[in-house]
Amino acid sequence: MLTRIFNWWHSYSRSTRKRWYIGIVYGLLASAFIFSIYNAFFAVHPTCSDGVKNGAELDVDCGGTCSQLCLFQRVQKIRILEKAAIPTRPDYYDLYTVIQNPNPTSGIEDLRYTFEVFDGTGASVAKRSGRTFLLPNAEKYIVEPAVKLEEPPAQVNITFQPISWRDLTNYIQPEVFARNKEIHSTPSLEQSGMELTGLVNNKSDIDFQDIVITVIVREQFSDEVVAVNRTDMQTLRASEERRFVVNWPFTFSASSPQIEVQAETNVFDNDNFIRESGITVSDPFFSGQ
């Protein structure tokens, strides 16, 4: 094959081959010139302000060759303040953690977590997973009740799946809080227990579909956690105050109980904002994305 090409090429005169050489060189130079003109004046190059993740960027218009850091590079990590297993009934424990978001303008719409319990040998004996949300600059209680364990746990860990932070510029904290908290025993013929009552107040201008109520009861003088629990409240109107009740099907002792109640609402979920008379409420607590 190469021999045939060689013979074909040399079948032309020397002057013809020279003209071919010159034509090829000029063709290459012309192509290079046209490409440089296109690249300089017509080609679209990645920039750090084009609203597209391209080039060496780690996210849209940030990271890599851009001077602007991406949100996941700027945020501080979630802080785990407490985590433990609280004995309830024989062979059952309630798992809880207190975490903190130190970022004033960044939150997590879908926070997926896993509690893992270990025995004295370091072996994993139980796991419990769930999902929640985390508001900016917030301390959050997470409770997973009634985990069956054959022996007292030696260690409790909590881990999080890869986190997608959301930048919440001009975020406004919803004004939902609990007050008038009282705890007492509820003796009955079948089973004694404990009951916590209180009031949840919505001082925001928005009606909410769901309120999450999480409770931690401590012994005031030792700060030891003696009980945890959670419940949900459906529909809390603007400026409304409603009574809530949390029950435990067992008793616990606290000579001077310190009751911590966290009432939260998910501002990431548009379905959580009640719509009336055809009016749509969307993201009323923040404007940033």
Rank of each mutant, 00 (worst) to 15 (best):
I34E: 02
Q234E: 15
D94P: 01
Q262T: 04
A126Q: 11
G51Q: 04
Y141N: 08
N54F: 04
S164V: 10
R17K: 09
Y171V: 01
V176M: 07
E151H: 11
T197W: 05
V267Q: 07
K203P: 01
Q73D: 11
E151T: 11
S192K: 08
P87C: 00
D207I: 06
G130S: 03
V261G: 00
F118C: 09
S222V: 08
E144Y: 05
V246C: 07
F208Q: 05
F118P: 15
P174R: 05
F273I: 06
K148D: 05
E182V: 12
T97L: 02
T231E: 03
A254I: 03
E175K: 14
S192Y: 11
G27R: 00
V125K: 02
A178C: 12
N7V: 07
I206Q: 14
G288H: 04
D223P: 14
A43N: 07
E116K: 14
S185Y: 09
D59A: 09
V215K: 06
K53T: 13
S239Y: 12
V44S: 15
L111Q: 07
F208R: 06
N229V: 01
V226I: 10
V245M: 10
R112P: 08
S277E: 13
L81A: 12
I206A: 15
P174E: 09
P90D: 07
S277H: 09
N247A: 06
T88S: 09
D232Q: 15
P102F: 08
T121C: 04
T114S: 11
R166V: 04
V98E: 01
E82L: 08
E219G: 05
N180R: 14
I216V: 10
L81C: 05
I34S: 06
S277K: 15
K140T: 03
V200N: 07
L95E: 02
R237I: 11
N229K: 03
A30V: 10
R230M: 02
T47F: 09
W248M: 07
C62S: 04
K148V: 07
Y93F: 03
L2W: 13
V143I: 10
K181P: 15
N54Q: 01
K203I: 11
R112M: 08
E195S: 14
R242N: 02
Y38I: 02
T280C: 08
R131T: 06
T169H: 12
I22E: 06
F250C: 01
A146Y: 15
P102H: 03
I279Y: 12
E260K: 14
F6V: 13
V228I: 09
E240W: 08
F33I: 10
T251N: 15
T105N: 07
N54E: 06
R128A: 13
L236E: 00
Y92C: 01
F41I: 05
E175V: 03
P90Q: 03
F286N: 11
D91Y: 11
R112G: 11
S11A: 13
D50A: 05
I158F: 13
G27V: 13
V156K: 01
N247D: 10
Q289E: 12
P284C: 00
R128I: 04
Y171S: 00
F285I: 09
V156W: 04
L71P: 01
A85P: 00
